[in-house]
Amino acid sequence: MIRDITLGQYYEADSVIHRLDPRVKLAFTVIYIVSLYVGEGVLAFALAASFLAVIIILSKVPVSFMLRGLKSIFILMIISVIFNLFLTQGEEIFHWWIFRITKEGIRIAVRMVIRLILLIMGTSIMTLTTTPSRLTDGLEKAFGFLKIFHVPVHAVAMMMSIALRFIPILIEEVNKIMKAQQARGADFENGGLIKKAKAMIPLLIPLFVSAFRRADDLANAMEARCYHGGDDRTKLHPLKYRKRDAIAYLVLFAYLAAIILLRIFTSELIKIVP
């Protein structure tokens, strides 16, 4: 059962966004984050939101899936809204007991909420539309230039993909050990925090022992299959840029340019009309 879970939050669908090279999506993620902080004012946020909306529609990922990611940061958002709202100095528009709300506070709070929502949704596009193995391939290629500085890019990517493969196996193992220890009278549910933490020891030790044994086996299996690092290694599905990737890059840079222009334009405007 537990082996069926998909890792990360990949949503399977056949769309243009899914087919894009992972490097393009990586670039999108970075550029989108930058654009949210470069952009200022209603127009910029409207542009960012509609750009994201178009991508979501193209990706065929249901909006409910997107919103699910927002749930986890909801509390964080509420807390920062409250702080910004009540603690910002400025022109007072509401005052009751020790609470005061200022015009500037409202502006900052609203801006922050919009930014956070767009940020979470924008960054989840990549993980929702890219399989973990394509993602690691993309990261390996995108950061390949670091090899000049002796960063073991291939080794890190290989470790990531092995970790991804073994997470479900280790989860299953945890369940198995837990049941075995419970059958011997271990109690994982009752007691305070310290008692619970102590109860984890008989779980963690066998897990570590078995993880090391697995690592040893895996190393042998990899060596037996001629593994000798990333040099001269070929790929079954090498990453290759296609026409759609070039178009996507163009759109992406056009978007960034628009955001920057908008920023320059609006700040000029503010200078002219203070």
Binding site: T131, S161, I162, L164, R165, D217, A224, R225
Partner: peptide, 13 residues
Amino acid sequence: MIFQNPDNQIIGT
């Protein structure tokens, strides 16, 4: 070489 534990020798996802 094929090893004993099928889980520990599969590398691909």
